[in-house]
């Protein structure tokens, strides 16, 4: 099954859906066929992929010691509660 030729506009329009893995196999093949041949769109895809990775990394932040302590206390409380339930 050969890929459907897409123009740059169509590829850029669907680029984020492609990066978000929202496309089906056929659509992915069409986009990748274009990206393998078009330097501009390939460069754009690389740029957005790189930026996306940096944005995704913003979802990890060192938890403050106060939160660690709070979670510790919470778990101890649950543990005590559960131990009491079973005795």
């Amino acid at each position: 099954m050969s890929a459907r030729p897409l123009d740059c506009e169509e590829v850029i329009e669907r680029l984020f859906e492609y990066l978000d893995r929202e496309l089906d196999e056929r659509q992915i093949a069409d986009i990748e066929h274009h990206l393998a041949r078009c330097r501009d769109c390939f460069t754009r895809a690389q740029f957005e992929t790189r930026l996306r990775a940096r944005v995704s990394a913003a979802g990890t932040v060192t938890a403050p010691p106060r939160l660690h302590q709070r979670i510790r206390q919470l778990l101890d409380r649950f543990n005590d509660g559960e131990a009491n339930t079973h005795h």
């Binding site: 979802g59 060192t62 938890a63 939160l67 979670i71 543990n79 079973h86």
Partner: peptide, 21 residues
């Protein structure tokens, strides 16, 4: 109970920065 607590804490600990972030 001890095993379950241990399992839960072991999984939670490396995830805390992600959860907080």
């Amino acid at each position: 109970i001890d095993n379950r607590q241990h399992w839960f804490e072991q999984r939670l600990s490396p995830l805390l920065d992600r959860l907080y972030g």
